[in-house]
Design a protein around this nucleic acid. Structure first.
Lengths: 195, 195
DNA sequence: GCTCCTTTGTTGCCTAAGCAACAAATTTTC
DNA sequence: GAAAATTTGTTGCTTAGGCAACAAAGGAGC
């Protein structure tokens, strides 16, 4: 979103990728709680001190891992730009499902901690994304900025809540049907504000 | 051979690997003559100046590529240590064939230049290897050191000559048979010196 | 011949990564 | 629950790699 014209040092880029990849690799055989910074540094073939130059701790690392991953799926689902609220909300739900599937497919057992870290990051990103979307595609000139912000916060939690419900409880149900049932609720929240 | 107890900087190791891999990758689509140092550095995601810190030019790089590759096959063929001259010579011929197959399978078109560079490196390694082998396994106490060195030189060229003949001309013939026909000639050269 | 353009090595200065050693916290083990 | 062993962050110093600019040497095209 922001004009990132900052030239990034190739070494930095490479090292971050090495660290990210190392974590992904380790999570195939170990729980996130079990993995140590030592192991990550070793697997990434970098020095432990270098790790700390990039991330304050392993939680900051996993935050970025989640953000990177989710951003990819989010962007992908936004390719054919969803111009109506309905299509937009569908895209969000699909992106979450995509990401969750990737995570729980590729990496064996992320568990408790990991999932809640992921939830936080994803909600944060959803809120940001929805905020921007509201500003661009639903100017709602008669609605105060504060109201839009509150709406974005609420929607991000709502979207995640619905997605999580399917992921953890209703996965027997067809995802497409589930999304079709859910979206009207979300859209309703928006329309309610439109006077 | 020499006790390499020198601790090698992880960055150095990584960079060399990046450069080697970059060349291999580029050789899948371009001739060695066509590949520029620029491209190699770019593909390796390192700076061109860094390339020159490791290799004096692309010829030095390809030398190492050949040495690394051939050394691998040579070591592998020496696993079950060939104690008789016959078995040893067989192992050498097999190693050359292994390596050649890998090169011309994996990389599309190495051509003229490349092949002659490879030939030089391989003969050099063969000579070194044969020299050590002669010293350890055929002490030949009554043969002067100079004589053994000359023998090593001659054998390295002979071995390569025979292998190359098969690789470039007689490949229709079964390799195993070809080796069985060739080895006696080589062993003969050694036996001739044994009193 | 000539120009234009690319590639080649080389250099000095700057920045990121490696290393070793440390205190503090945490976990293991008995 | 105390001792031993890991793990965690942090620090000062060293070294490898990035960058930009350079002269020199081909090559391609006219």
């Amino acid at each position: 979103m922001l004009g990132n014209a900052v030239k990034i040092d190739p070494r930095t880029k490479r090292t971050r990728k090495l660290i990210l990849d190392a974590l992904i690799q380790l999570l195939r055989t170990r729980t996130f709680e079990e993995v140590t910074v030592n192991e990550i540094a070793e697997a990434a073939t970098i020095n432990r001190a270098t790790f700390y130059a990039h991330f304050s701790d392993k939680y900051a690392l996993v935050d970025e891992l989640i953000r990177d991953g989710f951003m990819m799926f989010l962007d992908r689902r936004m390719q054919h730009y969803p111009d109506t609220p309905t299509r937009y909300m569908q895209a969000l739900l699909w992106a979450i499902a995509d990401h969750w599937t990737m995570i729980h497919g590729q990496c064996n057992q992320y568990h408790r901690f990991f999932d809640s870290l992921a939830e936080n990051q994803i909600k944060r990103m959803l809120e940001q994304h929805i905020q921007t979307w509201l500003d661009h595609y639903l100017p709602l000139r008669n609605v105060a900025a504060m109201q839009r912000q509150l709406l974005a916060t609420m929607l991000s939690w709502s979207v995640f809540a619905l997605a999580a419900r399917w992921l953890y409880s209703d996965r027997c149900q067809n995802l497409e049907n589930f999304i079709n049932d859910s979206v009207p609720l979300l859209v309703g929240s928006i329309e309610a504000l439109k006077v």
